[in-house]
Amino acid sequence: MSMRVPMTTSGAAKLRAELHELKAVARPRITAAIAEARSHGDLKENAEYHAAREQQSFAEGRIADIESKLANAQIIDVTTLAASDKVVFGSTVSLSDEDSGEESRYQIVGEDEADIKERKISFSSPIARALIGKSVGDVVEVRTPGGLKSYEIIAVSYI
């Protein structure tokens, strides 16, 4: 039995959109490319055929990967969580660096959704593990590559 992996509704929607794109657009395009390359005769020295087969292998692997992730996902709609000042999976947390006063904001998401450019961090990351279960006003310490950092939780939202 595999363990359910938490994922936000927006993360699941992104995976479903990618899955649809792969099945409805990429798969038929690759199949047509293979048929076209086959029509050129000898497959041993046919670079187009081998490239199309490689694309097919990649696309089919990604389809299987996404289907598996969605099948094992525990999808959590953060907008339905009872509003509180406690940090939980899916919540968006505003922090103040105790040393610099610099503020930052992160949403705690599933591992496949984590994207630091979008300010989304995995629930298994050191900072998320330090934050989960804490409340507004709490100070958490996080071991970072640059040393120990202290952050005050200044706001928690569920959006």
Rank of each mutant, 00 (worst) to 15 (best):
S124M: 12
R29Y: 09
R62A: 03
A33C: 07
R53N: 01
I153P: 00
S125M: 07
K86E: 14
I108V: 06
S84K: 08
S122R: 00
K69W: 07
G61T: 05
I121F: 04
E113S: 05
L81Q: 14
G61I: 04
T80N: 11
A51K: 00
I154C: 02
D97E: 11
Q56F: 04
V139I: 15
E67H: 08
S124Q: 13
E118Y: 10
Q74A: 15
K69Y: 09
E54F: 00
E21R: 15
F89I: 13
D77K: 05
I76Q: 02
R27V: 14
S39G: 13
F123W: 09
S135E: 15
E141Q: 14
V78R: 08
V109T: 08
S96K: 12
T80E: 15
Q56R: 05
A47K: 01
D97A: 11
S135Y: 11
K44T: 00
A130Y: 05
S104A: 13
V93A: 03
T31I: 14
I66L: 04
E141I: 13
D138F: 04
G137V: 08
S150T: 06
K149E: 13
K120I: 04
S91C: 15
K69V: 14
P126Q: 03
R29M: 12
D138N: 10
E141L: 13
G101E: 10
K23L: 12
S39M: 09
I108W: 00
A71Y: 04
A82P: 12
Y158N: 06
A13D: 13
I76V: 15
F89R: 03
E103G: 14
K149C: 09
A130R: 02
R16Q: 12
I76S: 02
S135G: 08
G90E: 02
E152D: 03
S94T: 14
D77V: 09
R129S: 06
T8W: 01
V140R: 00
L81K: 08
V140I: 12
I76M: 05
T144M: 12
I75R: 03
H20E: 15
I66Y: 07
D138Y: 03
P126M: 05
P28T: 07
Q56N: 06
K149V: 10
I75E: 15
R143F: 06
S2D: 11
R119H: 15
A73Y: 05
V25L: 10
T8V: 07
K134S: 07
D85V: 06
A17V: 07
P28K: 06
E45T: 12
E36R: 13
H20R: 14
A12F: 04
Y106T: 03
V142T: 05
A32M: 05
E45R: 06
I121E: 01
